[in-house]
Structure formats: structure tokens, C-alpha cells
Design a binder for these strands. Structure first.
Length: 206
DNA sequence: ACATTAAGTGATT
DNA sequence: AATCACTTAATGT
């Protein structure tokens, strides 16, 4: 994980290793943040969540990465505003937040925190762009692609309803858009599954 | 066989 | 693009 043996040693000393199965919820909006999760294996899916329980997919956290939001959240001692769901079975290092600051003495840690912040920021911008300027069919395709990339599995076990929830859109619309994608050979759908055909981008249409 | 859940459809705004 | 009302199909017990 870290090159600096001292930092690595610190990590192994204070972090609690935690394993969670796909689909498990690591945290929900409103939860207090006591630990910073660093993904060792697997991946997490991060969703925005509002007071009424509506959701919105934001991005994934992949191995070696940590949640930039928890970093800023605990720095300002606020509660989480996002929900974290396990995408692919994960192993997490749970680092008590107190070490966030004390570890700043390690240059490598500073760089790591900085890098993840920058990376997340870019990803966030990207998803904002998708949400703000793209039509739902493009958002859907983007969503499917990201999830496939995050799981390494081309076949997603998801219902239309679940997708609809995460894109905050009615199920019927998702069903119809999935059919369009199927007609274009980009996916094939089964009950509770979507088989995503990887390959070229979205290109042309309607 | 029955109940439940997922998906498909058409009409309406 | 959203919402409704309803049908049909798959799946679990």
C-alpha cells in the first residue's frame, strides 16, 4: 500500500481490517464518520442521498483509493452526506480519523491524501457533467459501464427498479431505455440481470 | 398451486 | 420525460 515502511507499519498497527460482501452498506447519509475506509480489494459505490431517501449514483472507489468525502467530512466534523454500498466484495482498512492529522508528518501520506482529493474532484466533475448535460440514456449507459468496470463482471445483477432508484428516475423509463440499448446491441437484458457489451462509446443515435 | 416480485405496455399530461 | 393503471411473466415457498 505505502512505500514508506514506517507509514505502512502505522497503517497496519492502527487500522482494522474489515471485509464486507457485495451489496452491503458501509454507511448511510447522516452517519457520523469515525473511520476512514481505504479500499484494499474490491470496490465501493458512492451515492448521494437526500432527506427523503432519494438517491443518486456518484462514483466508485477502487482498490488503493479512499473516500475523499470522508476526508473532508471529518476534517470539518460533519456527518456523511453520502451512502456507500459495496460493489464488489471488499476488504477495507478502517483508519480511525484521529490519524488523518498525525500522519501528515509523512510526506507520502500528504501526497496520498492530496492525490485522492484531486482524483475524486475530477471524477465528481465528470459525473456532474454527465448528469447536468446528458440525456438519461447517456447517463444510463455511463452508469452501466462504470459498474461493469468496478466489478470486472460484464453481467450486472440488478433490477430495473434498482437502477431507476440510483439514477432517480421512474422504472418504466429505465426499462424502455434498456430496450433501446438492447436494440443497439449494447446490452442484453434478463430478469434481474443486465449483460453489458463492452466496446466503443455511445456515438450516434436518435 | 399460490403469492410475490420484476418487467412490459399504453394512455395521459 | 414523468406518472398511472394495468398486464404478463418469472421466481420463490
Amino acid at each position: 500500500m505505502f512505500v514508506d515502511p514506517k507509514l505502512q507499519q502505522e497503517l497496519e498497527r492502527v487500522a482494522v481490517l474489515r471485509k464486507l460482501p457485495a451489496g452491503a452498506e458501509l454507511m448511510r447519509a447522516g452517519d457520523a464518520i469515525t473511520h476512514i475506509p481505504i479500499v484494499r480489494k474490491g470496490s465501493l459505490r458512492i451515492l448521494a442521498q437526500d432527506a427523503e431517501g432519494r438517491e443518486r449514483f456518484l462514483y466508485h472507489i477502487m482498490p488503493g483509493e479512499t473516500c475523499a468525502l470522508s476526508l473532508t467530512c471529518c476534517a470539518s466534523k460533519r456527518t456523511s452526506s453520502v451512502m456507500a454500498v459495496v460493489e464488489e466484495d471488499v476488504e477495507l482498512w478502517m483508519v480511525p480519523i484521529q490519524y488523518l492529522e498525525t500522519w501528515m508528518d509523512f510526506p507520502e501520506w500528504r501526497r496520498y491524501v492530496n492525490d485522492t482529493q484531486a482524483q475524486r474532484f475530477n471524477e465528481l466533475l465528470e459525473t456532474i457533467e454527465v448528469i447536468a448535460f446528458n440525456k438519461l440514456d447517456e447517463q444510463l449507459w455511463n452508469y452501466l459501464l462504470k459498474r461493469v468496470q468496478a466489478t470486472g463482471e460484464p453481467i450486472l445483477r440488478v433490477t430495473h427498479q434498482e437502477i431507476a432508484n440510483e439514477l432517480d428516475s421512474p422504472r418504466e423509463v429505465i426499462t424502455r431505455l434498456l430496450h433501446q440499448l438492447q436494440a443497439r446491441g449494447r446490452v442484453s437484458i434478463g430478469r434481474g440481470t443486465v449483460d453489458v457489451k463492452m466496446g466503443a462509446g455511445m456515438a450516434a443515435g436518435s
